[in-house]
Computed example of a mutant assay.
Amino acid sequence: MNNQLKKLKVFTILYVEDDSGIRENFKEILKHYFKDVFVAKSSKEAYQSYIKQKPDLLITDIKMENMSGIDLIKKIRQTDKNIKIIITSAYTNLDYLLVAAELNLIKYIVKPITNAKLFEAFDSFLKSNSDETIHILKDNWYFNSKKSIISNEIEEFILTKKEILFLELLLSKKSVISYEEIFNHICDDNLIMSQNAMRQFIKNLRKKLPLNYLKNIQGVGYYIDV
Rank of each mutant, 00 (worst) to 15 (best):
T133Y: 12
S172T: 11
R199W: 04
N184C: 00
Q53L: 00
I149H: 10
V10N: 09
N2G: 10
I134N: 12
V39A: 06
T12N: 08
L103T: 14
N2I: 06
D95N: 04
V220A: 02
D56R: 01
D80V: 11
N190V: 08
S49E: 01
E28C: 02
L209V: 06
Y142L: 12
A40K: 01
K6A: 04
Y179N: 04
R206V: 03
F38E: 03
K161Q: 04
I217G: 02
N152Y: 07
E28A: 06
L205T: 03
G21A: 06
I70V: 14
D18C: 00
I85L: 10
Y96P: 02
D123H: 14
T88Y: 13
L214G: 01
A90L: 05
G221H: 00
S175Q: 14
E102M: 07
I83V: 15
F38D: 03
T79H: 06
N184I: 01
S42R: 03
I182C: 05
A101F: 07
T88V: 12
D225S: 07
Q218F: 11
D139H: 12
A90R: 04
N184T: 07
Q78N: 14
F119Y: 13
N129T: 12
T60M: 07
N184S: 03
I150F: 06
A101C: 06
K111H: 04
S175F: 10
I192G: 00
E156V: 08
L97D: 01
L57C: 02
I217W: 06
Q4Y: 09
L72F: 12
A116Q: 14
N152E: 13
D95F: 01
K31Q: 05
I51S: 04
N3W: 00
Y223T: 08
I154Q: 13
P112M: 11
I86V: 15
K208I: 06
S42W: 05
D131N: 15
K63S: 15
R77D: 13
L191M: 10
K127D: 07
I29E: 12
F122S: 10
K203Q: 14
F143D: 07
L8K: 00
L126A: 06
D61W: 06
A100E: 09
K31F: 00
Y222Q: 00
K207T: 10
N144I: 13
Y213W: 13
K75M: 08
H185P: 00
K111A: 06
I134R: 12
V99H: 07
L72N: 05
L214S: 02
L171R: 11
V37H: 02
E28W: 05
L57M: 00
A116C: 04
L30A: 10
D61G: 14
N93S: 05
S42N: 11
K107T: 03
L103M: 14
K111E: 13
L14N: 00
E28H: 07
L165M: 13
T160D: 08
R23I: 09
K146D: 15
I13E: 02
F157Y: 15
Y142N: 08
L211M: 05
V226E: 15
K63Q: 14
T88N: 14
G69V: 14
K81E: 14
I217K: 02
H32R: 11
K9Y: 02
I83S: 00
L167R: 11
N115R: 12
S175V: 08
G221C: 00
I59Q: 03
S151D: 05
E181L: 01
S130G: 08
N196R: 15
K44A: 09
K9M: 04
S42T: 15
